[in-house]
């Protein structure tokens, strides 16, 4: 039965109705195609100064040159290592705190007043302090990246823990679980898929701090390359750096989405 034609809407304009994978792909390509085309036209038409706005093709050419002749791959690996080390440390610290603070009022009320305000302090404002305390070495960069995410990570993981169904915990207790078992086998296990979601989102934030960490007193890394390019007004190289960060961010996001999808089949969208 087809509804009268004047009531029919273009797919994607019905309230809350999802669109098929073809529609998803098509619209995504449309958006990127228009963006790149607009950029290209802006650059080649002479509307914008091509030195300050190189075309997408020139950015790709610069990227190929960076990787092929200038050893940019090593810089990318340095940045990747910084993200993995600092973010890994942040997760290792935040996970037990978020679990305990979400499950029990004592650690929550002890630590949350301390941790919560730090979320409002921009991590870059710690740069002068970190330079004095840790010097200009690797530790200073790792510390900045760590400070950029740790406060949010703890509070978000705490909220994830708090959202665990109380009924599940009580069920476990009536089945004979002691406190430790209830905490680890039920609370932690139950919140795990949402922990992965939070970690994925905070990883994106970590990438956004990368350039800030590598602007100050850095000789290697994607950010340092971009600062060198700025001095030589190589906008194409700066843009290539931005592009690489974006792609790496997307890839790490996709990996964590894959982990979420593969490890928690019961918690995929729409499963109850």
């Amino acid at each position: 039965m087809t509804p009268p034609s004047r009531h029919r809407l273009i797919p994607g304009w019905r309230f809350f109705e999802p669109i098929g994978w073809k529609g998803k792909l098509g619209l995504g390509l449309l958006a990127w195609g228009s963006f790149l085309l607009g950029w290209h036209l802006l650059s080649v038409s002479g509307w914008a100064n091509p030195r300050l706005l190189p075309s997408p093709l020139e950015v790709l050419r610069a990227m190929a040159e960076l990787f092929g002749e200038r050893g940019f791959g090593a810089d990318v690996l340095v940045s990747l290592r910084r993200i993995l080390l600092s973010f890994g440390a942040a997760v290792v610290v935040a996970l037990p705190l978020g679990l305990l603070m979400g499950a029990f009022a004592f650690p929550e009320n002890l630590l949350n007043p301390l941790i919560s305000p730090f979320r409002y302090l921009p991590a870059p404002s710690f740069v002068p302090l970190l330079l004095m305390w840790l010097g200009t070495g690797e530790m200073q960069k790792l510390a900045l990246l760590f400070l950029g995410v740790i406060w949010f990570l703890v509070t978000l993981l705490m909220d994830n823990t708090r959202a665990v169904s109380r009924d599940l915990v009580e069920s476990a207790q009536t089945l004979g679980a002691n406190r430790r078992q209830a905490l680890l086998k039920v609370v932690f296990r139950s919140a795990l898929p949402t922990y992965v979601d939070t970690i994925r989102q905070m990883l994106a934030v970590s990438w956004t701090y990368l350039v800030i960490a590598e602007i100050v007193a850095a000789t290697d890394g994607i950010g340092a390359m971009m600062m060198r390019a700025k001095r030589l007004v190589r906008v194409d190289e700066i843009m290539a750096g931005i592009l690489v960060i974006g792609v790496l961010g997307l890839v790490s996001d996709a990996i964590l989405r894959g982990v979420r999808w593969g490890c928690f089949p019961y918690a995929r969208d729409g499963r109850k």
Binding site: L168, E170, S171, A172, T174, L175, S190, Y266, A267
Partner: peptide, 15 residues
């Protein structure tokens, strides 16, 4: 464990 309990809400462990 000497007293089993069945709740009104569904409390099976989803994982």
């Amino acid at each position: 464990p000497d007293r089993g309990m069945v709740f009104q809400s569904y409390t099976l462990f989803p994982w």
